[in-house]
Structures are given as C-alpha cells and as structure tokens.
Design a protein around this nucleic acid. Sequence first.
DNA 1: GTGAAAGCGCTAACAA
DNA 2: TTGTTAGCGCTTTCAC
Lengths: 339, 339
Amino acid sequence: MPRQNLNIRQLAEKAGVSTSTISRVLNNSGYVRQEVRAHVERIIAETGYIPSGIAKHLKSSRSNMVGVIIPRINSFASSEITAGISTELAESDLMTILGNSANSPDAEMNYIEIFKRQRVCGVIILATVLTERHLEAMNDLGVPVVVVGQDASASGFPSVLQDERRAARQITDYVLRCGHRRVGLIGVADWDVQVGCERKGGWVDALRAAGIEPRPEDIALGGFDLTDGAAGIDRIVPFVSDTTPTAVVAVTDRLAIGAMSRLLERRTRVPDEVSIVGVGDIDVASVYSPKLTTIHFDYFGTGKAAAEMLIATLDGETTDLRRVMPFDLRIRDSVSILD
Amino acid sequence: MPRQNLNIRQLAEKAGVSTSTISRVLNNSGYVRQEVRAHVERIIAETGYIPSGIAKHLKSSRSNMVGVIIPRINSFASSEITAGISTELAESDLMTILGNSANSPDAEMNYIEIFKRQRVCGVIILATVLTERHLEAMNDLGVPVVVVGQDASASGFPSVLQDERRAARQITDYVLRCGHRRVGLIGVADWDVQVGCERKGGWVDALRAAGIEPRPEDIALGGFDLTDGAAGIDRIVPFVSDTTPTAVVAVTDRLAIGAMSRLLERRTRVPDEVSIVGVGDIDVASVYSPKLTTIHFDYFGTGKAAAEMLIATLDGETTDLRRVMPFDLRIRDSVSILD
DNA sequence: GTGAAAGCGCTAACAA
DNA sequence: TTGTTAGCGCTTTCAC
C-alpha cells in the first residue's frame, strides 16, 4: 500500500514520544531506554517511515552527495571509472550524482555550479583539460575535489593518474625489443595533456633511448575515433615498403583497432607486414583478430582510488596529493618478431 | 577567492531588502520593481551567492533529483542508455543520481529505499528482472517510476522496450533468406525475460515460419561473457560437417564475438564455414573481422525516451505506458550466401 | 511591490 | 533518559 510518507512529528505522536527521541533512535545517538527504542523501531517498521535525508542534511549542512563530472560516460574507460567511483562511494553511503559534460568545458563549469547549489559534500572530476577557470571554480566550490586523469596536485587537488608516459615508453620499448627500428605513432592533439602529450612523450623517450631520432613523417595526429586510426595508418604507412615503418604505436586501443581494420581492408597483414600496438586494453582488444598487444590500465581501480581519496579527505584524514596507478604490458599477437 | 557561501538572509541584508524579495528575484516569481531586481541581481553577482537547492526542495517538497538504477554501468548498452537518460534529464534541470546495482536484486531494493530517503522526484530503473518485491517497492515509492528493458506496463509502470522478439526474428529471417536451413542459437538463461526468452522466441518464430522445427541440440544457453560465446559455439558446432548448423544466431554481439574469436582459434573460417550473427550492434561489431551482421538498437535514444516519459509524467502530462523502440538490421560480412 | 512571519522535516543544545 | 526549543536556508501566504 502506497502510504503517505509521514514526518518525524507525526511519527513521534504515533509512538507517544518526542521527535528528539525518534531522531536519537534513527541515528543511534544519545541515550534511549531499550524498551523505548524497541517500541519506536516497531512503529517505524509498521508505518514504513523513511526519514527525509534532505531535511537532515539541511540541518547538518553536510550532505552525502558526491558530484561526478564525466566527459563521456559512454566510453569504455569512463564507464569503468564511473563504476569504480560509485561502487566505492556506495560503501560509505555516499550518493553519486552524475554530470555528463560531453567534453564541453562550459558544461563542466555548469556542473560545478549545479553541484555547489546541491551542496554536494565533494566532487570528482574526470577532465581531459583543466583550465585556469576550472581550477578557480573548483577552489570556489568550498568542498574537496579529486581530479582523475590530469595532474592537478600542483594546484592542491588530489589527483589520480595513469602513468601515461612510462606506459607508452614501455610498449614502445617492447616493439623495439622485437626488432623494429622504424616505429610510427598515431596520436591525438596536444591539448590533451595525458593522451596527447604524455603518451607521445613516452614513444619519443623509447626511440631516443634506442638511439633513434623520431621522424615527423612517422607521426599522425587526430581525434579519438576508429576513423582517425584508419586515417592515421593511411598517412604513416600508405603502402608497405622499405621506407615505411614496420610497426606503429597507437596511443589508444580504439585508434589501434581503427588502424588494423583499415589495414585489413587494404589486405595488409597484421602483424606480418605491419605491427600495431595500442594503449588501454579495452575489452575487445583481447578478442580482436589479431589479438592486440597493449598496455592494461585498471580503470575500475582508478575510479575506486579517486573515491577513496575523496572519502579520506572528507573524513579529515590526509591523503597523497598524487596517486599514480600501475599498469602492465599485455603481450598478444599484433607484433611480429623481426630478429 | 573561496568566499564563505552566504545565505539568503545575509544577502537580503547586504541588498537592503527582505528575503522574500530575494526569493522572488531568484525564481522570477511575483512582482519586483525593475530597479530593485537589477540591484539584487548585482549584489548576487558580486557576492557569488548560490542558493541552496536542498533548502529550496525541503520547502517545496519536490526535488529535482532522479534516481537511476543500473545493473552494470560498465557495459556498452547500459552506459549508452545512462548517457541518454542523463542528457535528457539535464535539459530539464534534473539531476541524475546513479545507483549501481551490480545485478543484485537486493542492491536494487536498497537503492529504491535510498532514493526514497533522498526524496527524488522520480526513478528510472533498468532491470533484467522485476520481481513482485520490486514492483511493490516501486509502488511504495510514491513518485513516478519508468522501467527500461522490461515490460512493466501491466503493473502500471511506463516502460520503454526494445522489440526483442521481432528483432531476433528479423535477423534469423535474414539468415534463412541467405539459404541456411540449419541455424543454431547461442542464448542466455530464461530468467532474463528480454534477452533470454524474447530473443530466443524470435529465433524459434523465424524457424517455424520457414517450416523448420528448432532442435534442442542446436541450442546453447549460458551467461553473457565472451567465454560463454566460445563455449556455446564449441557445443553447437564442435566441428564443421553436414550434420552441424551452417549458421548460428547469438543473442548478443558479445556472445557472437566470443564465438567468432573461438572459431578463429579453431581455424574455422567465418562466414565461409560457419556464419554468425549477433544482436545489439555494440561499437566493435562494425570493426571486427569479419564485420558482424547484427541488429542495431538505439540505446542512447532508449535512455532519452525513458527520461522523456518520466519528465512528461512529472509535468502531469500523460504518456504511453509502453514505448517500443525501433531497430534495424545491419547487414555486414559474417553471413555467407548459400544459394 | 514589498516585508513579516510561519513553516518544510529534521538535529542538537539545553533543561528537566 | 527524555522533552522543549531554536534553528538549518528557503518559499509563500497574507498584510501593508
């Protein structure tokens, strides 16, 4: 029966006690005689009374809502991170409020304001870019903020990051160890600090460490789509010859798959004629044919870590200002051994 | 500067007006002299005042929060649906509160209570199963509920559904039109009404309409993982011969890809030796090799539709009790033409 | 047009 | 141990 939800006063009346006693029973605070507690609990069960969290938080002025800003929830990494965040928050009875920013800085700013209005107790932001305006707004928020995917520790915000540069370096090292000397790069624009700069940087590091100077003509920069991967490979390896790269590092798995898909259309064999690697280990990487050699990131764990850091801050504990997530190399079938 | 957020009373004092006037300016309600409005607005801008939504809703007792229960946000369909929901809700200034149920009915029940406590103004639930307990709790909620993926219209809940049975029937029809007479099924357990029963039902419908009686030995039921797809194909088509199916319908793309991946390992050619189709059109379906012939569902649109129905109900408008989303057949390269 | 005052449902001193 | 009371920050009659 869909009963009218009553309030604490009506309940108190029904139970023949004061509202404070109800409140004490509800929150297990203060002293309540055992019998009274039992009686109140029975009335609560009978009436199906559910207290208003909103009124409670108005009073205590600290809510249990955490705002989470996500650029694009319908992507593998984002959705895993979100799952990690909300799972961890739920453990501490915190609610996840979703802010889908669709990669628009304006929408992000807007959500920061909305979250402030809702008096969230904290915010987790997955940003591809963090401008001065963002940082300022995050400061003005007046509640703890944790950043995922960008390093904002210099501005005082706890950040959890992938070790992008070392990851890219490591997979490039692997390609080099397989005997490839001419290794191309399918990357993304530089304004994306992590994927754009850092992963590209790791590729450069690896090449230089092997005494190879990266060549501009072996680099293709674009967006994040499958088609960008296809366009990239067409640019770097328009045909297979002695003068084109024998291997290509794509900075994301999606780009790598776009590239492999294009090569298949061109009837170029992977890895026999061209080797391809990615970064990220999205779920299809391991079932694509050939199975993609890539870097595995723990996105779910990343989300969990961010939530942990936020909770710690909320509890007044101190946390690291930077947490760098581990990664590992998943060697599969998309790289040929040349030596 | 991270100013202390002041309240409406302090603001009223600063502006030299009453709190009611502030409220009127804030909500564009009632009469306020033009100059006074301008003045108040300036003060608001100067102080960076942001009103507390929580206090507002305590008073008006209608919040702007919508609870969304998702079984597993880190899956392609769920995350697309969630994106659609939150995008549409945001248009109407409604917040999305995420409830990650991890497929556990208990967690779902729990979220219903949490949402009630938070006094959400509505709930959208993506359920794989809807028990009596669910329906009862949804009734007790006292706010509009929209169901996605299951038909709860009989219980009075607006539902938005995929046309699962017709979708499965249509793709099976296509396989039959290509000349296949022996068509297997990789399915999932029956407790999943939509994917388990309906999709399987569509497969049966198509076969019977073609005068073919479905054979139990051509059916493999299991879970939703890639490995279940692999196990399924091993069971139905352990080897290629005249006595095994020439084509297999997998009830999800993920299962289809698991099956194709396994066939590749077995060096069985798709579609030359065995044809495979899926349902869902997840993002990799179109880049897998061979490109997967499947049914395309508009998951983002499904989420949007659910949100629209909820908003309409909230606004006191009437909506359909059932909304069946359209789908279309995406013919690609994973079915061989036999005739 | 504007302000005073009475709550929305709860918590937390303070008294008893 | 329990009840009384005064708010939390806002909206909304109802006077003026």
